[in-house]
């Protein structure tokens, strides 16, 4: 199976409560909390699309969009 390619990490800032679960449990340390304690994707190029942040987020804030029909 070809490796999944990230299209975008969409974070709903209005819903994020800054608990830091996504930041600390991301295997590639893609996310960080900004000055307002909201999650931001600072290293999206490292994302492996495991979607663990999306699934673990207690505030249903994160959506990992994956490039479709790409067979590179």
């Amino acid at each position: 199976m070809a490796r999944q390619k990230l299209k975008a990490i969409v974070i709903n800032r209005d819903w994020c409560k800054g608990c830091g679960i996504c930041v600390h449990l991301c295997p590639k340390k893609v996310l960080e909390l900004d000055a307002k304690d909201k999650a931001v994707a600072v290293r999206p190029e490292d994302c492996i699309c495991c979607r663990m942040c999306e699934l673990r987020c207690p505030d249903l804030t994160i959506e990992i969009q994956i490039e479709e029909g790409d067979n590179e």
Binding site: D14, W15, C16, K17, G18, C19, G20, I21, L55, R56, C57, P58, D59, L60
Partner: peptide, 19 residues
């Protein structure tokens, strides 16, 4: 939304899993 659960509450994760 945003829901009333505290930051980091596991209940939100369960809602996420259920959905």
């Amino acid at each position: 939304f945003p829901h009333m659960w505290c930051p980091g509450c596991g209940h939100g994760t369960i809602l996420n899993a259920l959905i």
